[in-house]
């Protein structure tokens, strides 16, 4: 399988990369890990005139806490996230997510930024970032702007990113004490996209009630889905089984999955419910709540 011809550019600074994007407009595409883009080019599902590889731009690979945020450089490899002591100790939901993306070899190339910027509702980070209330930082000719993740995904493979912008960083508010999160993915086998996936992030109040909950769903519609009603429902409630089941039902109501080889729509919606409940339970456990 051979991609159609294109020109490859490897700028060594963000400004050079932005200039190339500006120059070639819609005919250019940013290449990060290439784990989604290159297969599409090889199958010739997509054609592109210019690939702008951001892999040689220094300073885009990191995961650090700074100013009340966990900041992840857009070009950070999934494998690096999996190995980061910070992520492993404080953000198990991100470890959950990174560890089920594609397969271990793909994760050595695939980037966190690419997983978001591709705009694929089947990708795993979007749901987690929605649950965590993350923002993405993008750079364009007019400078830098931050976009809340819940405003980032516009449609199937479409994001708020303009063709002359580059996603540079993901910012996640450092969760308060008594917080926990989990991501669960139902997949047919390793390497598959999710039949359904659910991310849950909760903060418990002093009395043990849920102070705040974030829920994101994978492959549950044309865009990654934030289960807003379920989140609202949970706020202030004690995390008993009945409450979590109701939250699961509300989350599933937000889903509008399309049927494919992984299952019919009703199955996928039900899986969104089941996984939401399970993810909430795991999140509450991690937050120090009752198991």
């Amino acid at each position: 399988m051979i991609p159609a011809a294109f020109d490859y550019h490897a700028p060594e600074s963000l400004s050079d990369a932005l200039a190339l994007l500006d120059q070639h407009g819609e005919d250019a595409k940013v290449l990060a890990g290439g784990m989604s883009l290159l297969p599409m080019l090889k199958i010739r599902l997509a054609q592109v005139g210019h690939l702008v590889d951001i892999g040689r731009i220094p300073g885009l690979e990191y995961a650090k806490e700074e100013g009340g945020f966990l900041k992840i450089g857009a070009a950070t490899k999934e494998a690096a996230l999996e190995r980061s002591d910070l992520i492993r100790s404080k953000y198990p939901i991100l470890l959950d997510t990174a560890a089920v993306i594609a397969d271990p070899l793909v994760r050595n190339r695939a980037t966190v930024g690419g997983n978001l910027a591709h705009g694929d509702p089947a990708n795993d980070h979007p749901a987690t970032m929605l649950a965590l209330g993350a923002s993405v930082v993008v750079r364009g000719p007019k400078g830098e702007r931050a976009i809340p993740v819940d405003q980032f995904f516009r449609g199937l493979f479409t994001t708020a990113l303009a063709s002359n912008e580059i996603l540079t960083e993901i910012r996640i508010p450092v969760p308060p004490a008594r917080s926990g999160g989990a991501y669960l993915k139902l997949e047919r086998k390793v390497g598959d996209f999710a039949t359904a996936g659910a991310a849950a992030q909760v903060t418990l109040g002093a009395g043990g009630a849920i102070e705040k909950a974030g829920i994101g769903l994978t492959n549950a519609g044309p865009t990654p889905i934030k289960a807003v009603e379920a989140e609202k429902f949970l706020a202030g409630k004690r995390p008993d089984d009945q409450t979590l089941q109701e939250a699961g039902r509300l989350a599933a109501r937000a889903a509008s999955p399309s049927p494919d080889r992984r299952g019919a729509a009703d199955y996928k919606r039900e899986m969104a419910r089941v996984l939401t409940v399970r993810a909430l339970k795991a999140a509450i456990r991690r937050a120090g709540g009752p198991s």
Partner: peptide
């Protein structure tokens, strides 16, 4: 025997 097939039976 896919998960979906089994789930339909369970349902």
């Amino acid at each position: 025997i896919t998960p979906e097939k089994v789930w339909r039976i369970l349902k």
